[in-house]
Design a protein around this nucleic acid. Structure first.
Length: 697
DNA sequence: ACCACTAGGATTTTT
DNA sequence: TCCTAGTGGT
């Protein structure tokens, strides 16, 4: 307790009733949550009475380990989605579903939706598929069961999900709310199970998540919510930061505590971030402060091209690593869209800097992994249509799209699960499905393969089952058709086997179904820390993390803020919050980078520097850019141009005569009247300071 | 049914 | 620039 400030202490000591902690960036939020859990345990609350819900798997993991550092108890920490999966696994029967449903990820549900469009003869023009997917997702997250456009697609999609005995990600929330709302006994059961409920990142809860929180805490009222409205960045996923502002009225008797002392960043970084977020009209005033001291100025770099931008970042990373002995693990590059990562990967690779790409296409989303996992899904399920479609013709068994459509349609008409239907087809022919001898043989092989794996499942460990699935299906010979990618893919499969056996060792009761469930909800938990590496990620992925050195890249108008957010001030404000989140991840060194030209879709495009650059006052900035005049015209960055007055440590006041790119990077030719001396000074070595008001004598 | 080739569309952000 | 859906030949 003594290591906490008074506000933190109050939050930690809070026991019963609703509480909202408005926790600014870096204000020790995780610490407060973990200490409070420890405190609850100290006063005799059982570990099993406590439920902590976070926003990402990573955050859940982090919280679990932080709690374990304090207490040896096991506290259930999970995301809303995995909480939903857990509840539904136990109780979905009340809604008329079977409880051994499979979970479809984004790719799966998009494929399923695509098949719906095809079946209804609706062509996927102008990203209609995506639009409908978003509409369905939004509807479910807002707890509505219809959409305006193409309701028939929604209906068919739901029907197909049910036929496949599958739930999509949004169902995990939507159906949980439905279950808790409509079945009082079920609701009471879960209200009794968890007497203390903690929710992190409360500003990013959507309607469904909000209702889960409300329903679960209705009896005991012990809801402890933590969040920061300035860090709400998921409105496009239905998040409503208003939830945090309405907390007092939603949960009568709520106490509210604000944490505004920042323990992470230098004052320069905080002031700059504060200044930026001030440009948002819709916000509750809160000013972070810190005792860490002023620290370095924020580096600004406007490159000519995105390549040059990446080069600067790579160079600067090496400089920090070599000069200040900062580990690569303490350095991160953030960008707005995943596609931006490539330039940085190239630059880091060419300098042999280890890096880890966070997010993006994860291991478990790779084709070969999903193929084999789908095969394993068929071991468990008779109904999983997508897993069946994915594996039935791998390797080629003579069953092409036309035949598959006939089979799936007939199975659907029959009301028979797809695999069961396949088995029946072998025994007696079906009027609508005529198969050639070759096709019949192929289908027989497939059914035999699944039967074989099903028979083997009880007697061999999981990782052996996986390698048997690979060998028995002759998957490797299929991979060998593409010589270029074959080696990589084989290695990935080996890694999958390795990961499975590792997982088996850790689990008290390993089973195939648990393994698959964990993977579908926890698709990226990788990351080996053995080799220090620079972390590359989107700004969204950066939430909740901190690094000694942060590069915020691609600060170009239309990229960040993104072009799609231009038509509404609300959306621009969310982009600004995203920028705020990025800046406040930095502990000591922050760089804001941009470029004047950028390759998009193969063509070079002129970009304007982001408005966010101009919203950070020049006094906090230090310009590293080579193209001074361009920048000076366009905004008020620090950095010097001809005519600027500067102060030098040794020579005193001087005037910049020229700025140019020298051997040591940006260089100034400066005249010092008091010494009657002209010197060429490299910007990175001579620490020149701006002299603002006073003219030279 | 499968293969090879081509034209046109794509990039926001995530559980 | 890269990926994928669509086309036409075998």
């Amino acid at each position: 307790m003594q290591s906490l400030n008074p506000q933190q202490q109050q939050a930690v000591a809070h026991i019963e009733g609703p509480m909202l902690v408005l926790a600014g960036a870096g204000s020790g939020k995780t610490r407060v949550v973990t200490y409070r859990i420890a405190h609850l345990l100290d006063i005799g609350v059982l570990p099993s009475d406590i439920l902590a819900v976070t926003f990402t798997n990573k955050a859940a993991e982090e919280m679990r380990t932080r709690i374990r550092m304090l207490k040896s108890a096991h506290i259930l920490t999970c995301t809303f989605h995995s909480l939903g999966a857990r509840i539904l696994r136990e109780s979905i029967g009340h809604l008329g579903y079977l409880n051994d449903f499979t979970i479809y990820d984004e790719e799966d549900s998009e494929k399923l939706l695509k098949s719906c469009l095809e079946q209804l003869n609706i062509s996927n023009e102008k990203g209609l598929l995506r639009q409908i997917r978003n509409a369905i997702s939004t509807a479910k997250n807002n707890l509505s069961d219809n959409i305006e456009a193409y309701p028939e697609v929604y209906d068919l999609y739901q029907t197909k999900l049910r036929e496949s005995q599958a739930l999509d990600f949004d169902d995990l929330l939507y159906l949980t709310v439905k279950l808790l709302k409509e079945h009082e006994s079920v609701r009471q059961e879960y209200q009794k199970r968890w007497l203390f409920l903690l929710i992190d990142e409360y500003q990013d809860t959507n309607a469904a998540q909000y209702h889960i929180a409300k329903l679960l805490s209705e009896q005991h009222h012990n809801l402890f919510a933590v969040g920061d409205p300035d860090q709400s960045i998921y409105s496009w996923r239905g998040a409503r930061y208003q939830n945090i502002l309405n907390f007092e009225s939603d949960f009568p008797g709520a106490r509210i505590i604000t944490l505004d002392q920042n323990y992470r960043s230098t004052n320069t970084i905080l002031q700059a971030a504060n200044a930026l977020i001030q440009h948002n009209a819709n916000r509750y005033e809160k000013k972070l402060w810190s005792q860490i001291g002023e620290g370095d100025k924020i580096g600004i770099f406007i490159a000519q091209t995105e390549r040059a931008e990446a080069d600067f970042v790579a160079k600067q990373i090496l400089k920090h690593a070599l000069d200040q002995h900062i580990s690569f693990n303490e350095i991160a590059i953030f960008y707005r869209t995943n596609a931006q990562s490539r330039a940085f990967e190239d630059a880091l690779l060419s300098r042999k800097i280890n890096y880890t790409l966070i997010g993006g296409l994860s291991f478990y989303q790779r084709r070969e992994i999903k193929d084999i996992l789908s095969l394993l899904k068929m071991v468990i399920s008779n109904a999983d249509l997508l897993a069946w479609l994915r594996t039935i013709n791998l390797p080629k068994r003579g069953l092409g799209p036309t035949t598959l459509e006939k089979i799936t349609l007939a199975a659907s008409k029959n009301g028979t699960p797809i695999f069961t239907f396949s088995e029946q087809l072998l025994e007696r022919p079906h009027a609508d499905v005529k198969l050639s001898g070759k096709q019949l043989q192929g289908l027989t092989d497939y059914v035999k393969l699944i039967h074989h794996l099903r028979a083997r499942r009880p007697s061999i460990p999981l990782h052996e089952l996986i390698s048997e699935a690979i060998s028995e299906s002759r998957y490797l010979s299929y991979l060998e058709e593409d010589a270029e990618t074959c080696q990589d893919r084989k290695e990935n499969l080996n890694e999958l086997i390795g990961k499975a056996s590792e997982w088996e060792k850790e689990q008290p009761q390993p089973s195939l179904s648990r393994f698959l469930e964990e993977l579908s909800l926890n698709a990226h938990v990788e990351e080996d820390d053995y080799v220090p590496s620079v972390k590359l990620m989107t700004l969204h992925n950066s939430k909740g993390l901190e690094f000694n050195v942060v590069f915020l890249a691609g600060l170009c108008e239309d990229l960040f803020p993104h072009i799609n957010s231009k038509d509404s001030e609300e959306a621009i404000e969310e982009e600004r919050r995203l920028c705020y989140v990025g800046m406040t991840r930095a502990k000591r060194h922050l760089y804001l980078c941009s470029s004047l030209y950028r390759f998009t879709w193969g063509a070079e495009q002129r970009m304007e520097p982001s408005r966010f650059l101009k919203e950070v006052p020049a006094q906090y900035l230090q310009n590293f850019s080579p193209v001074l005049h361009t920048i000076q015209e366009e905004s008020d960055y620090s950095g010097f141009t001809t005519g600027d007055r500067v102060l030098h440590q040794e020579f005193g006041e001087g005037i910049v005569k020229k700025a140019y790119q020298g051997t040591f990077g940006l260089t100034y030719e400066v005249y010092f009247p008091s010494h009657n001396l002209t010197r060429n000074l490299a910007a990175k070595y001579a620490k020149l300071v701006a002299v603002n008001s006073r003219p030279l004598a």
